[in-house]
Design a protein around this nucleic acid. Sequence first.
DNA 1: AATAATAATAACAACGTTGTTATTTTATTT
DNA 2: AAATAAAATAACAACGTTGTTATTATTATT
Lengths: 329, 329
Amino acid sequence: MGVTIKDIAKSAGVSYSTVSKALRDSPLVKEPTKKRIIQIANQLGYQPNVAARSLVSKKSFTIGIVWPTIERAAHSALITSINKRLEHHGYTTLISINETRTAIDIFNRYRVDAILVFDDGPERYSSPSSVPIVTYGIAEDPLYPTVDVNRKKAIFYAVDYLCRLGHKKICYIGDLKKRDHLQKEKVEGFKQAVLDCKLETFSGQMIPVNGLEQYDGYVAAKDLLRSEVIPSAIVIGSHDLTRGILQAIHESELSVPEDISIISYDNIPEMNNLVIPFSTVGVPLETITKKLTEVLMDTINNKNKDKEMSRVIYLEPKLHISQSCRPIN
Amino acid sequence: MGVTIKDIAKSAGVSYSTVSKALRDSPLVKEPTKKRIIQIANQLGYQPNVAARSLVSKKSFTIGIVWPTIERAAHSALITSINKRLEHHGYTTLISINETRTAIDIFNRYRVDAILVFDDGPERYSSPSSVPIVTYGIAEDPLYPTVDVNRKKAIFYAVDYLCRLGHKKICYIGDLKKRDHLQKEKVEGFKQAVLDCKLETFSGQMIPVNGLEQYDGYVAAKDLLRSEVIPSAIVIGSHDLTRGILQAIHESELSVPEDISIISYDNIPEMNNLVIPFSTVGVPLETITKKLTEVLMDTINNKNKDKEMSRVIYLEPKLHISQSCRPIN
DNA sequence: AATAATAATAACAACGTTGTTATTTTATTT
DNA sequence: AAATAAAATAACAACGTTGTTATTATTATT
């Protein structure tokens, strides 16, 4: 079974409390003894028992991530980055892919120091959690501190940018369903921009997709390109759609940005494996994870009090200009 | 802070040991008292402290999954299924996406009951882990009990099947690099089958890809279709490649299976969102996760002794015949 | 060399559970 | 109604750790 502090004590001929102090590098134990103890610990492959430790110290130095939507590729990049950042703060990340309610219960049983919820779902989970919760991307009347991207503004910026380049006929390809809050925001941003920029509106300006995968983008774009009036620019609501849309454009023997300008919503800085470097709007992934880590640490250290606890932090999207849009004469 | 058994005891006017028994549904406590205690526990939102519990009982009812390659879509389906199965056995699944060595250490500190490693990497981690380890897909001289798919056989079956349909000119598209053990197996299966079935060999019979993504398949197939001799059938080494290959075939105005037969290696039963229902070879995902769960439970309950501990279980692939292959006259 | 001050180590309680043993309450027998 | 058996509950030790307090060993001061 697992090696304990007492095994080390016996082997070193000291009391177990001395071992505890030595391993935590306390100044209360003499340097040579400390060295000897540490060496024995390594030799025996000692790993401190988290259960025992967190039982007495009421700290686990662990963050639980709730991730029921495990397939979402975008989230996996976020989680990788968060994990790295938390590691630097001395925290361990543990993930549960269970349904949100269940996962929160699990982490409560483990008494982790904080829970980070990644769940796009519209479901409300009024969770009696004694462990503090932070959420990402559920800005609609959240019960907990939330970090979110201002998606409305993002798409607004995209349209505004195209407009300043002189584009008049601009389409939006994305999820138009009312259900998904995150996608709805984007649609609103588009509508607002069309209004504010005094752009032409026309039927078929907003093209729906069935899902957010490459294939869905392909289908939607095929559809669009078959119609008689082709827009001079397209705003794409979600990352994966872009590839499919490009594919469709290529098949129509059109090229980007010569024949058509394209800009996509995206947080991930990896639109590089596409044919041309792509222009995007969105909050850089590292900005998101930096803020999330910050909020988590503040929450743990009780830096935010009372009503402040349930406030939303909207991150400001950035326009990342590359080579997929061109000015119109 | 968290509600403890003592809080409940106070509120119910009984001793905390009675509460413990009541919550574990022990016959040692009278039914009405039990009911009352359980009700109070729910009311207070009590969640048992895993740390305290596993400290005394030496059981955590938790399995740690090591998953450093978080992006691998195929694994996410496996993990989802495993999670569900383990839940039925009363186990909780916790995931770490840290580098394998680190993740194993973490789970050792947590004293989970077993660790399941999903790591394709060829790296050897001679880990001094006091928690038992089970691995998936690292059959090459494994240190721990391992479940693996017989990939060599899988591809063999695919070729054999095509051969029996009368195909003579069969190509393989996949990763040909020597590095990746999993991919190498498949290549060997192909070579073996070509030999055993006395098939024609020709230059350019095995087409390499750069990665295992859809795009890589597209590029490889484009290349193939540009050459003067086009095979009558293609065996595809990995799931995601398939879409790209189909794309390329369509662009060449060929159709499947009329002009060309295609069969793909795949464990996931979801080749449905393709244009036609696809023929595949591989071990069904549920078979894999069933066996993995079995091995995990056996390992925990010490059902496998001594040298048996480090044996490999090769799962037998199944041919799943659908509509992407046709017989040749 | 005896005493005080300090450094190093040991002993012990506590954390929230479970499982075992001890005590009290209730039911049964005479 | 007293004695006994059975049922229900309470008390206590243990798990592996940390932090506090008590003890012992060492050094400094006279």
